[in-house]
């Protein structure tokens, strides 16, 4: 049963059966190995019930693979609520989930998106070498960041 242990939840989005699409999950695996004090959730895609889940937290970080090339190989940026939902599917973006959390529960958690660049998305298990390198960089950056007293998500997590 889910016990809400921490004030920050990190949601890894993706599918490790699709090569670099598994970056979000791999990131959570690293946190698990290091036993960092966050609640973790693995998702193939975000759905509306995740709005209820994140309403229980002060902070949320969405970690996902991205196809756009990034100089550092990763990017951590604020996630702001937006009702930019897709017409045709019930899979929702982090911004939309945040918007629904705000609408339904009148709560607006501090949210960020960690995008990690991947290049291969075919039906195969295993990250590409570029994605693996970007994952290591992103994770090092994240660990350095949470150790910093200036990092907003480190407050009381």
């Amino acid at each position: 049963m889910k016990k809400l242990g921490h004030k920050t939840i990190i949601i890894g989005i993706g599918n490790n059966g699709r090569q670099d699409d598994g970056l979000g999950w791999s990131f959570l695996d690293l946190i698990n190995e290091d036993e960092l004090p966050f609640d973790l959730e693995y998702r193939y895609q975000l759905q509306i019930e995740d709005a209820e889940l994140i309403s229980k937290y002060d902070n949320v970080i969405f970690v996902d693979a991205c196809k756009t090339e990034i100089e550092e190989g990763y990017d951590l940026y604020p996630c702001l609520p937006a009702d930019n939902y897709s017409f045709s599917t019930h899979a929702l973006s982090p911004e939309t989930i945040l918007y629904i959390t705000n609408e339904l529960y009148n709560i607006n958690p501090n949210a960020q998106i960690l995008a990690i660049h991947g290049i291969n998305y075919e039906l195969e298990i295993g990250l590409s070498s570029i994605a693996s390198k970007n994952l290591k960089r992103a994770y090092k950056y994240f660990k350095d960041k949470i150790a910093s007293k200036y990092f907003v998500l480190t407050k009381n997590y």
């Binding site: 049963m1 889910k2 509306i48 019930e49 709005a51 209820e52 009702d83 939902y85 897709s86 017409f87 019930h90 929702l92 939309t96 918007y99 629904i100 609408e103 339904l104």
Partner: peptide, 28 residues
Amino acid sequence: EKRNVVAVATENKELAKKGILMRKFGQE
């Protein structure tokens, strides 16, 4: 653009909350 679950959630909040928790119960 209105015929989707997000519009249901924002315009019928109580219904949406129940729907979310009913699905969650089954998933749990």
